[in-house]
Design a protein around this nucleic acid. Structure first.
Lengths: 330, 330
DNA sequence: TCCTGGAACTTGAACGATCAAATCTTGCCG
DNA sequence: CGGCAAGATTTGATCGTTCAAGTTCCAGGA
C-alpha cells in the first residue's frame, strides 16, 4: 500500500516549505517560476492530490454542489433529469466541483435536507430544478446566503436569483409556426391547467404565434393534468367537436403520446407535436420540442462558479432556445 | 447569520468535555445515561451537526459513495440508471451515506477517476454498474482494497466481490412460460450477440424453459446488436421465414419496440415481450420484464455498509427476481 | 487502611490543509 | 554603500473532530 502523500511530503522532496507547495497550487503567480517547476515535478512524481477534507476545514469550502434527484414520476418526463444530471456532473468536474445527490419527498423535508447538507458537508451550492410560483426553497436559501441556481425561471421575480431556463414559449411557437407553414389553420393546444409557470409559458408561445398570423385560436385551447390517458381524452374530445383541429401542439410528450393514439385513425392525418424530446418520442417517432439539457447544465455550473469563485455579482440568468425535432408525426 | 456551532459549543453548554460529546455520538454505551441525555439536549437545542470534513480528517472515512453516471446511450435503456440512482440515494441517506457522481468516457479514464476521487475525497466505496467479462475496474479496486459493490454479476468469478443482480434468465423464463401457457409453441428469442454476460443469461432463460417443456427452439434464436431498427429487422426476418414464430421474447425494450412495429400487421396477433420495463414500454403498452431497481439499490447499500461498518466479511451477493408486467402486447 | 480495578470523564495531540504574520532575498535608488 | 520596498519563502496557529493516554471517583476485597 502506497504511503500517504501529503503536502509535507511534496515540500520535503522539492526542498521548500509546505506553504510554498500550497501557493503553487492556489496562487502560482506569487511563486518564482523555477521554484514552481520544481514543486510541480515533485507533485507529479509523487502523485500528490490535495486532501479536500483538510482544505475544506480551513477554507470552509467543499467544492461540492448538491442536486436533488426526484423519484421517477411519470417515467416519461423523468428522463429529462437524467440527461441534465449527466451534463451537470460533466461540467462540474471540469470546473473542479463534484455533484452530490439528495432526495426529498416534499418541500419541507427538502429544506431540512438543506440544513443537514450544509451543516455536515459545508456544501458550496445547490442546483434546484422545477421551481414554481412562490417557491419557499429559494427564499430559504437566499435568506441564508447560500449560493444556488435554478433550472427554471423564478416566475414571480425575474431577478431574484441566478437561473437558467429554456424558452418554452419559443418552443411551442416554433412548433406552431411549422404547422402554420404547412398550411394548417386550426391548430389546437393540449396543455396543463393554467397557473403553472412552465405550462402557461408553453401555452403563450402557441397563442402568440397564432395571433401574429391572424388566426383565431378560439375553442382550440385545452387544459388537463399531465398524462397519456388525459392527452388521449382531450384529443378525442377535440376531434369529435364541431370544428375539429387539423393539428395538435402538446405541452408534454405524455400528452402528445395519448393524443397520438387518438388521432391515429384520422384521415387526413393530424400532425402531433410533443414537448421535451424524451426517449419515448425518439422511440416512436413523435415530433417534439427538444431542450438543450447539456447546455443548460453547463450554464448552471457557469453561473455558480461565477458566484463562488468571483466576487459577488448581480444575479445573472440565461434563457436558452429549444429546437423542433421533426419525426413521423408532423 | 447563526454562529458556527461545534462540538465545543455543545460541550460547554452540557458542561462536559468535547470527548464526551463525541462519545455520545459515536459510542453512546460508554456514557452514563444521565450525561448522555444532558448532552443530547444540548445537541438538539443548538442544532449541532457534526462536521464531516473534520471527522473525515481524523478517521479517514468520508461517508461518501461514488456512482458513475453514464451518458444516456440509447435513451430507452438509460432510464434504468435513473431509477437505480434514486434508490441508491434514498437508501444511502438512511444509512448515513451520501452519493457522489462522476463521469468517465471509457474504462481507462474511469480508473483515473477512481484515483482522483480516492485521493481528493477519501471515498468510502464505489457502486459499479454494468460489469462484463474481465472488467479491469473491479481488479483495480480490489487490488487497492477499496470497497465496492457491482450491480451486475462478475461473470467470470462468482465470488470475486460483493454484487447484486437481477436474475435475467428467470425473467425471460417467466415470459416464455407465460407464452407457453397461452398455447404458443413457436416462441422466438430476439437477443444480443453471444458473449455478453447479461445477454447470454437472458437467452438461457428462454432456452431452458422451452427445453423443459419439450419444445424445440430450433431456428428461433436470433442475435443482433441493441436498437429499435435492429429489432424490427430481425422480427421481419423471422416472420417472413419458413416456419414463423407465433410469439417473440426480446432481450430489451428497444428490440421489442422494433419488433412490435414489425408484427403490427400480423394476423393473428403475435405477442411481444420486452425487457427492463422502461418508461417507453409503459407508455406504449408493451409487456415487459421488470427489474426491482429500488430493491437492487437498497441491497447494494446494505452490502456496502456491511463491509464498511462491520468487520471484514466474505464477499456476499444477492440475486433478485424480476417480474413480468403484462400489458397490451402479450 | 490500603490497594486494585473499572467506569466515567478529561486532556493533549494529531489529521492535512490554508491563513496571517514573520523572515529572508533581491533589486534599485540616492 | 546604506536604506528600503517589493518579492519570495518560511513559520506558527488554526479549522473541528477523534484517538490515545491520562485523571478522578468509587466500590469491594484482603
Amino acid at each position: 500500500m502506497a504511503e500517504k502523500v501529503t503536502i509535507a511530503t511534496v515540500a520535503r522532496r522539492a526542498r521548500v516549505s509546505r506553504q510554498t507547495v500550497s501557493n503553487v497550487l492556489n496562487a502560482p503567480h506569487i511563486v518564482r517560476e523555477e521554484t514552481r517547476r520544481r514543486v510541480q515535478e515533485a507533485i507529479d512524481a509523487l502523485g500528490y492530490r490535495a486532501n479536500q477534507a483538510a482544505r475544506q476545514m480551513r477554507t470552509g469550502r467543499s467544492r461540492l454542489i448538491a442536486v436533488r434527484i426526484e423519484p421517477t414520476r411519470d417515467g416519461i418526463n423523468g428522463s429529462v433529469l437524467d440527461r441534465f444530471l449527466h451534463g451537470l456532473t460533466e461540467t462540474a468536474e471540469t470546473a473542479g466541483y463534484r455533484i452530490m445527490l439528495y432526495t426529498a419527498t416534499d418541500v419541507d423535508r427538502e429544506i431540512v435536507a438543506y440544513d443537514d447538507l450544509l451543516g455536515a458537508y459545508d456544501l458550496d451550492a445547490f442546483v434546484l430544478t422545477g421551481t414554481d410560483h412562490g417557491d419557499p426553497r429559494t427564499a430559504w436559501l437566499a435568506g441564508r446566503g447560500v449560493p444556488f441556481v435554478t433550472f427554471g425561471r423564478p416566475w414571480d421575480a425575474p431577478d431574484a436569483h441566478p437561473w437558467v431556463d429554456v424558452d418554452g414559449a419559443a418552443g411551442t411557437a416554433q412548433a406552431t409556426a411549422y404547422l402554420l407553414a404547412a398550411g394548417h389553420r386550426r391548430i389546437a393546444f393540449v396543455g396543463w391547467p393554467a397557473g403553472s409557470g412552465v405550462g402557461d409559458d408553453r401555452r403563450a408561445g402557441w397563442h402568440a404565434t397564432l395571433a401574429a398570423a391572424g388566426v383565431d385560436p378560439g375553442g382550440l385551447d385545452r387544459e388537463t393534468v399531465d398524462g397519456i390517458a388525459e392527452g388521449g381524452q382531450v384529443a378525442r374530445d377535440l376531434l369529435g367537436g364541431a370544428a375539429p383541429p387539423t393539428a395538435l401542439v402538446c405541452a408534454s410528450d405524455s400528452l402528445a403520446l395519448g393524443a397520438l393514439q387518438a388521432v391515429r385513425a384520422a384521415e387526413p392525418a393530424v400532425p402531433v407535436i410533443g414537448f421535451d424530446d424524451t426517449p419515448v418520442a425518439a422511440a416512436i417517432g413523435l415530433s417534439s420540442v427538444s431542450q438543450p439539457l447539456g447546455e443548460a447544465a453547463a450554464r448552471c455550473v457557469d453561473l455558480l462558479t461565477a458566484v463562488l469563485d468571483g466576487p459577488h455579482r448581480t444575479p445573472d440568468h440565461v434563457l436558452l432556445q429549444p429546437s423542433l425535432v421533426l419525426r413521423h408525426t408532423a
